[in-house]
Design a binder for these strands. Sequence first.
RNA 1: GGAGGGUUGGCAGAGCGGUUGAAUGCACCGGUCUUGAAAACCGGCAUGGUUUAACGACCAUCCAGGGUUCGAAUCCCUGACCCUCCGCCA
Length: 424
Amino acid sequence: MLDPKLLRTDVQSLAAQLARRNFDLDLELLNSLEEERRQAQLDAQALQTERNSRSKEIGKAKASGQDIAPLLAEVDDLADKHKAAEARLDDVLAKLNALAMEIPNIPQPSVPSGKDEADNQEVSRWGTPPIFDFPVKDHVDIGNGLQQMDFEAAARISRARFVTLTGSLARLQRALIQFMLDVHTLEHDYTETYVPYLVNADALRGTGQLPKFAEDLFAVDDGQLYLIPTAEVPVTNLVRDSIQEATSLPIKFVAHTPCFRSEAGSHGRDVRGLIRQHQFEKVELVQMVPASDSEAAHEALTGHAESILQRLELPYRKMLLCTGDMGFASTKTYDLEVWLPSQNTYREISSCSNFGDFQARRMQARWRNPDTGKPELLHTLNGSGLAVGRTLLAILENFQQADGSVRVPKVLVPYMGGVETLHG
RNA sequence: GGAGGGUUGGCAGAGCGGUUGAAUGCACCGGUCUUGAAAACCGGCAUGGUUUAACGACCAUCCAGGGUUCGAAUCCCUGACCCUCCGCCA
């Protein structure tokens, strides 16, 4: 959520910046609520002051043995008035808060204005899409050929948008997870974490999934808990309600978790294959840094994700998302898109975002600035490093061979017990 | 599932319903002393908000939400979380 001060003072420029991401800030509503809030707060405070001083007088009078009955008569209706004023204030604050929670983050100046993904800017490309001298199969056909990937079996066990992997494909997925965690912990200095896969609503509000995006989540236990849609939620919330020492920054966490998404609203999209599943594995990078470091950290974190693609020899391009395609809580997002031969195009495999202080404000995640001695909000960032299901898919398609077998990327061979090729 | 105990500032830990935003200790910051350090001594040290040009003034916060009261950290109710014992269990 945004700094409430912005909502009070600089609404015009705020509205202009939010208009860039096609968000229509209701200035009229905001201003009238704000005026109402100010008045209600002043009233409530004045009554509070009076009550406090009157009560103190009564206390003193009683202590010195005076008759307090007349004093009590004077304050007879004060409590009722105060309660009414408080109720009015609470009501306005609740409305303002509800409004504030639905306002997205402000895009950084370097983010291009745009409507949807068509307006995203390509920043760079790495690798060359492979050329095949045989008919290219998609990963579903390759998996079927290997007899190690079964969507029908998964649907019988669960429902559509689930998969089962067996044998060397299941192992390849595990190898990818190990490999990614090893690179990020050993070379990029992230701390490995293990976190809950079921989280409460506060945690989801902290990272911005709630209140706006409840329909994308799977709820459990009468809505008391939710399956995580990404490790971002539990990992970022590790610093909730805390004040970090400057010496412990930057905080860099990496976690492998399954992710669960209801995919409400994407019926009919990517129905075939691994691209869009209700359950998938992901290795997630999360950083918490001082405000002054977050832009550099964003570039570095994106580089860490890119490094995985490069080591796996997967061609990709790096996209700077336009204002219209960015997530709710983000100030700036790079998407990494991997080459998929079967679709003859690039598809998202990682999304790396800088959230500024937006999530930290909701979580009350702070650090103590030694220069001022005061707590300041952290900046939070995260990125997939990488989405494992989609990485598996990309390997199958980019490394497929004419006989239906699949070559294992060199860096993964040690993680596959020396196996260099997957056969049926 | 059953029975008990608990939740107070960065930490530990006091707190008869009335000037307690909260004793005390530790930690931390500044100073005195010292060649330097330690010790000792002195002082400072929560967060958020309203208002103000500023100094300041005021308000809120002792797990959360209700209630009683002129007045609640303190009394009552509900909930969350933590701990102990019993039962069950990977």
